[in-house]
Design a binder for these strands. Sequence first.
DNA 1: AACGTAAGGATCGTTCAACAATTCGACAAG
DNA 2: CTTGTCGAATTGTTGAACGATCCTTACGTT
Lengths: 228, 228
Amino acid sequence: MKVDDLVADLSQDRPRLGRSSTAERVADILRERISEGFFPPGRRLSEEAISEALRVSRNTLREAFRLLGHERLLDHQLNRGVFVRLPSVEDVLDLYRVRRVLEGSAVRRPPSPEALALVKEAMRDAERAAAEDDWQRVGTANIRFHQALVSLNGSPRIDELMRQLLAELRLVFHVMDNPRAFHEPFVERNRVLLGLVESGRREEAAAYLDDYLDHAEKLLVHAYEPNR
Amino acid sequence: MKVDDLVADLSQDRPRLGRSSTAERVADILRERISEGFFPPGRRLSEEAISEALRVSRNTLREAFRLLGHERLLDHQLNRGVFVRLPSVEDVLDLYRVRRVLEGSAVRRPPSPEALALVKEAMRDAERAAAEDDWQRVGTANIRFHQALVSLNGSPRIDELMRQLLAELRLVFHVMDNPRAFHEPFVERNRVLLGLVESGRREEAAAYLDDYLDHAEKLLVHAYEPNR
DNA sequence: AACGTAAGGATCGTTCAACAATTCGACAAG
DNA sequence: CTTGTCGAATTGTTGAACGATCCTTACGTT
């Protein structure tokens, strides 16, 4: 390996260098707490309380709030504070509109082997978890499956968008009574979809996926009551 | 009109209420300046100088920086400051990947009449401007055309994404020598594309669009030199 | 000529304290 | 039941301060 190649390889790690301001780490913590439901949708996050608990200044905390606000995880209302976002039914509809576009275009494209491998691994993990009745893990594996599916597009920006979108979907699940029952039936569907993609029957895969998403959306909207 | 209907109607304006913190207005100003090239790509934005010029505190300005950073207009480097983003060639490639997905799925969908009307209006404006040799206006009309095209998807989130994407593309144009020459040949192509969409020949439109974007991407990458 | 070190200045990161602006709830008056 | 009014609580914004980090320059070493 030549020197030029070595430095080219190293330069991939460049982004990891700058990554650590207090505000961003605070945002990481909050993002995780929100995603796991510790801060449920609708909950107000007090600047004073949280800045005190995390031992950071209010200013730094506010920077973190801005970051999460842009990811649609927090809702910033002027002079009232920030709230964990409570998605409306329209939001759910739009999330699925975007999913149809992103995942649809993903399955229509000839998949790269590496990306496809990730999809298969998520698939396997979901099946293992289902066999063990670990529905928590089935849920996260299902999410990984679709994240990997979208990555077939080969676009970092689309990957990033999908990450945000799925984080937002998690908010929706936190509002529902029984998110577990929601993930179960889709393990089988994932397998079928993956089979179609692998065998190169792309249009069939796209059609199947559309049906898949229609179904999921209907279930979700029906069970979803963002009113209190 | 009953009272209930009145208040329901009014509640549409709700979002407009909260929208005006100093940080956001500062972000608006900076966004405009960047978009018009006043702050060229690569330029460093000094916290002290700008906060002084705009008469806001450094803390408030930093909040604005965070906002624009998330829109990929600014590049925030730890302990070094914020810079107007200078897109790489890889960025250009990815921007066109996303365009292919968003615009492709837009033309495949049966268009709503209202959305289509906006596309046609942008088209007409571009033609008028071209007739008057006003290439500045041709450029913005061209951008409006594609923004409207994407809005055929009917998704607010996708509209928002496209807005950001086009803002990023504007950065690319600011780096090039002669952005004008770049917009000219596409007026004709826009017309053909619009014709195909209007007559419902969606697959043909999608194919034409793919070719369109391939061509534009090639031109752009070839002319683009983000080195100095 | 290439490299290691050191010093100084500039700028950012973060904190803190203070005050103005706004919201909210309670309570009194009509 | 609706409409003012008041006060407490919280956010919005500011300005100053100090440590941390980076950049530049200079100087000496190899």
